[in-house]
């Protein structure tokens, strides 16, 4: 049986590289073997993994996140296996991005508004800048693409004007509502944001419920409506939307 290295740091460096996908074939085989036969090493893997999910990750500074902090979920459909992992990855990024700030404020008294701002400022925003879907008209798609680009350029007035050209009975209107809600949030118009996110949630069979609930929860926090925020978090927890974020925010609120 391979012996665990008494040098904690050396083992943990190997484990870090394992979870960061940095091992070559030989090293991966070593880790696989030790995982099966070395209980101390396995416990170190557990300890590192549990810590890592909550503490730090260099992905905070990944290029993808640095650029405009947006994620384009344009072609997101119902929650199949492979869209769920993508959402999970987004949720983890979201959590990691907020981690330092959340950790910092967790030991101090902060207002719900500060909490909302902390989560919001580190959140990727859903946009539709490369939209090509089958549930919206061409005109709607074009408008959503333009409005998304304007949103990313922080030209919120122009973005809202573009979105206003889309009729409310359009089948893809929930996407419009989601983007509008994000704009209103940026403009500190939180009640209007809540209403837009509600329109997202109310839309039948839509694929953006998780973000609708999440952003609406943050808007409720801004409005000081704690009960409504908690109710949303309960729904999200039941539906397993953005698990890590929901768990973290619930703990902060309580």
């Amino acid at each position: 049986m391979p012996q665990s290295s008494p040098d904690f740091t050396k083992d943990y460096e190997l484990i870090r590289r394992y979870f960061d996908f940095e091992l070559d074939e030989t090293e991966l085989n070593i880790v696989n073997e030790r995982m099966e036969s070395d209980p101390v090493f396995f416990e170190r893997m557990r300890l590192f993994s549990a810590s890592d999910d909550q503490i730090l990750n260099e992905k905070e500074v990944s290029t993808a996140q640095k650029e405009a902090k947006t994620i384009d979920l344009t072609n997101r459909k119902s929650r199949s296996l492979m869209t769920r992992w993508r959402a999970l990855a987004a949720a983890v990024v979201l959590l990691i991005g907020s981690l330092f700030a959340i950790w910092y404020i967790s030991n101090s008294n902060v207002s719900p508004s500060q909490l909302a701002q902390t989560y919001w400022s580190e959140s990727e925003k859903v946009t539709f800048s490369t939209l090509r879907s089958d549930d919206a008209s061409t005109a709607t798609e074009d408008a959503l693409i333009t409005a998304s680009q304007q949103f990313q350029e922080e030209d919120y007035t122009a973005s809202l004007a573009t979105l206003s050209t889309i009729p409310t009975d359009d089948t893809g209107y929930h996407k419009v509502a989601l983007l509008k809600g994000e704009i209103y949030f940026e403009q500190n118009n939180f009640q209007a944001a809540v209403d837009q996110f509600q329109a997202v949630i109310d839309h039948p069979n839509n694929e953006y419920n998780d973000y609708g609930y999440w952003y609406q929860t943050l808007a409720y926090l801004e409005l000081g409506e704690m009960d409504a925020a908690r109710e949303n978090l309960v729904v999200m927890k039941e539906q397993r939307y953005l698990d890590n974020l929901v768990k973290g925010l619930m703990e902060e609120i309580e």
Binding site: F21, K59, T63, A64, R86, A89, V92, V93
Partner: peptide, 8 residues
């Protein structure tokens, strides 16, 4: 995904 796609 975080490492190799988003993290490049």
């Amino acid at each position: 995904w975080l490492n190799c796609v988003e993290g490049e």
